[in-house]
Structure formats: C-alpha cells, structure tokens
Design a protein around this nucleic acid. Structure first.
Lengths: 200, 200
DNA sequence: AAATAGCCTTAAACTAGATTAAGGGTCCGG
DNA sequence: CCGGACCCTTAATCTAGTTTAAGGCTATTT
C-alpha cells in the first residue's frame, strides 16, 4: 500500500533533514507532529506586511517570493523559494515585531510550516535541530552575501546572466517583471538586456 | 590580584556568550582553550584572497573589513567588524575552498580566533554552541537581508544617512573611501553627497 | 626638510539605467 | 466570446552616479 496520506510531504522533509544528519524515531515523530502541510493558491499571501511572521515555511512544490514594497510603491524581491527552500522573515519571526516584508505564492504551492513556539519547542526537545538549522542558516547567509556582492559589484547584464545560470528553470516559470524586481532593475530595462542577448 | 593575563580577552568573550545563554564551567574552559587571542596591525591581512579561510574571528578591539576586489580592481566592502562583531568567509570556511574575499585590519585590532577543526570539535563536545552560533548566524542573516534591501531599494544619499545612523562612531574612525566602497559608490560621489549635506 | 603616498574635493564629460508613454499579445473570468 | 487585467516590448527623454583629471592637505617615511 503506497503512502498517499497527507503525511506524505512530511516524509519528504524528513528525508531532506536526513541527508544532513540521521534522525532518531522520536525526532522524526517530532518533525511529523510539528510541521503542518498547507496549500497556497497563486497570489495568496503567506505573510502580509504589518503582521508578525509566525511561521517558517519549507517549500514542497511551487514557488514563493519574499519581497518588500517601498514608499514609492515599487516591489523589491529579496528571495525566491522553490522546492526544498525555506522562507520566512526571520527578523520578525524572532523579534515578534510586525514585518516590513511580505511573502506570497507565485504559483500554486504546497509548503510545510512550523509555528514559532513549536520551533522553539523543537529546539529544546531535540537539540539536533539547533545544529541542523545552524547549518541551514549558514548556507542562507553565504548565499545572501554572494547576492549582495553581485548587486554592488556587477552591472545588470552580468547579474541577469548569473541569474539564468543559477536558476535555469525559474526563468521559464515566472514573469519577467519578477526577475526584474529581483535584479533591482525595471522591466523595461530587462527587456532591453534580453533583446541585446538574442542578437548576439 | 587583577586579571592581567592574556586570558583577559577570553573572559570578554565568555561574558558575551553568557549574555545569550549561561555556560557551565566545562564550557567556559572549552572556550578558553579553543579561542586564541591575536593582534593584527593596521593593513595586516587576516585572510587573503586565494587562501582557505581557516578561522572565525571575534573582534575584541579595533576594526576589520571583509571585502572583495573585482576584475576591474575595485574593492567592495561587504562588512565592517568592530568590537563584539564576528568575521570570516563562511563559504570558504565550511567548504574548505579558496576564498574570493579578503579580510584585513583597518585599525590595530585584537581578535579571538577559533580554527575550523576546533570549532567543529566545540560543537560536538558542547552542543550548546550549536544553538549559540545558530542565533548569531540568524542575526547576521537578518542584518545582511536589510543591507541587501537597502542597496536595491534606496539611492546613495539615503544609504549614506542610514549608514551614519547605524554606525555613528565609525564615520569618524575610518577613511571616506572605505565608506564609499561599503555603500557601493565612488569616493567622488560620496564627497558630493557630503557637500550637499553640510549646506542643508 | 624633503619626498612620497594616502586621502579629500571640485568640476566637466559621459553612461547605465529610470521614467514616461504607447501599442500589442494573451490569458482568464463573466 | 468579449472585456479587462497582466505582461512584454520599443523608443524618446532624463538623471543618478561614473570617469577622468587636477589640485591641495596631512601624515608618514627617508
């Protein structure tokens, strides 16, 4: 009998953790009991500006975006989160203060979520998750550093080429306006870059 | 008898940790035995591009910079590290691959350093440090995200004002060329911004 | 005491990228 | 099957920030 239960996706997450560090049965059960699967429709909010971010989400399928809308009304995408990525506004999540950012679904997406108190509980009940999340956050930090470096040291054309290399499939999955907003340029200018690219 | 031993600075670090989480005597001794104090003179390298980053440094006094020199020869400062800050190239540190970045001292600086293998050892001997460093890295990530957001959504004038608010004393301690390189603009343009500011 | 090397500033010419505006395509929902 | 909401593109004009060049000011080295 194949496992078609709702817990299906939790097994995916357990497999993900075990690629890093093997878990005991109790730890697996802890994960299964604390992470809730949830479906978000395209354009649905996971986190809305002004609310306190109360969950960390692991993307099982689909794609989310973490972004901020500035005073002028322009949106700036900080991070895309696809299959096997994590998202949340960690600043708001830990400080328990209203977020200045938003998270929404770019495609219909399935995620596994853990609430703030449950995560803290997970950490104390099973310190292995302190290590697991330390490593995950370290990886995020390295990625974020690279992105910052790119942003301050390369022009838009180089940044776009790099984006295409780093997320080859994403370019065909999401609108160019989102890519522009991620790269920190206008859709019009991205269009110009793409046009030059084809001619070459 | 006042403690004027070389271990003096380690007590500072232990105090720093205990503000987050109390340590047992064994844990304190572990810290004292694994962290080495070291003095760097102004302009001396802590990490040089092409080398594997083998230490994490905690700044006791002075100021360091983490930066990258691009193909055109321009330097881009990713992070300043002053008293009570941490620096390293975490990407290189964990992957054990040559770093594309450099770290050097802006002022004569005292740091406490832990080597790669000693840190891994510290994590396994005292899992509390998994949590401690998880929290530290989370804070870094939040800061890095804010900085990225600033960089892609605000113009240079706003970024400079923000820098002055966030590091009020630093502005008087380091050359403006460094600030420009941190903000991602030329020293000439920073000079223009500063000039406009005074007139207002 | 001179000399060299940083560092800061000013100003003119230039460029990457923004803004504004307009037209056309496609995918829904009613 | 039609109307609107998105989305992509092209082109003209504009601007924030770069480049190049030059001059002066301090501090450190010789």
């Amino acid at each position: 009998m194949a496992d078609r239960s709702p817990n299906n996706s939790v097994n995916l997450l357990i497999g993900y953790f075990e690629k890093m560090l093997p878990l005991t049965e109790e730890e697996k059960e802890l994960v299964a009991s604390r992470f809730q699967p949830r479906l978000y429709r395209k354009r649905q909010f996971i986190l809305q500006e002004g609310d306190v971010c109360n969950v960390v989400s692991f993307v099982v399928s689909g794609c989310l975006r973490l972004y901020k809308v500035d005073q002028a009304g322009a949106t700036h995408i900080i991070q895309f989160a696809m299959e096997n990525w994590w998202v949340s506004d960690m600043g708001s999540f830990y400080s328990r203060k209203p977020s200045e950012m938003s998270i929404d679904a770019i495609e219909d997406s399935t995620v596994l979520q853990i609430k703030h108190d449950d995560l803290l509980d997970l950490y104390t009940k099973a310190p292995k998750f302190d290590r697991l999340f330390r490593v995950l956050v370290e990886r995020s930090l390295v990625g974020m550093q690279e992105r910052l470096l790119q942003t301050i040291s390369s022009d838009a054309t180089v940044r776009y080429e790099f984006f295409l290399k780093q997320y080859p499939d994403l370019a065909n999955r999401i609108p160019n306006t989102y890519i522009a907003s991620f790269l920190g340029i206008t859709p019009e200018f991205l269009s110009k870059i793409r046009n030059k690219r084809v001619l070459r």
